[in-house]
């Protein structure tokens, strides 16, 4: 067992855990943050995506020891004071979800994508999100949501 101290959604947290345990399970089981989803355990579907020091990271294949002293943002940490993040807003407005299980990962990936590239082309959106699976196959609506998010984020800044 090890003590892992890290910041989650702006709050300092400390957990006692086996250092090899996936970050995903620490978030879900120890911290009650179930918005981050398990999809495959092999880093192939993106459902478990969180932002680690601002970079999209697959929490199912990230051992807990790797987050020592670092900052993690999960889907629960995105809306500020009850106001949806522009990316979340765009996913709602475009109805870019069916079962919605892949949505948290898609949203966090999009946040990161738009930070690096505020006006992506459809081709850049497709490349940026290709590591994420949606088995309801709502890919068209998700691409539309990312486009809309770029517009909403542009208006806000």
């Amino acid at each position: 067992m090890a003590t892992i101290k890290f910041t989650v959604n702006g709050t300092a947290r400390s957990v006692e855990t086996e250092p090899e345990r996936p970050l995903l399970e620490v978030l879900r089981e120890d911290l009650g943050l179930t918005g981050t989803k398990y999809g495959c355990g092999e880093g192939q579907c993106g459902a478990c995506t969180v932002l680690l020091d601002g970079r999209p990271t697959l929490s199912c294949i990230t051992p807990a020891r790797e987050v020592q002293g670092r900052k993690v943002t999960t889907i629960e940490g995105l809306a500020a004071n009850g106001k949806l993040h522009p990316v979340q807003q765009a996913f709602v407005e475009e109805s870019a979800m069916q079962c919605g299980y892949c949505t948290p990962g898609m949203v966090l990936r999009t946040v990161s994508l738009l930070e690096r590239n505020p006006n992506p082309t459809d081709g850049e959106i497709i490349e940026g999100l290709n590591g994420h699976l949606c088995r309801c196959n709502g890919y068209h609506r998700i691409v539309a949501a990312v486009r809309r998010a770029a517009v909403l984020a542009g208006k806000q800044s």
Partner: peptide
């Protein structure tokens, strides 16, 4: 739009 969309996008 889905009536439960907000709960989905916020996790």
């Amino acid at each position: 739009p889905r009536v439960d969309a907000r709960d989905i996008v916020t996790g």
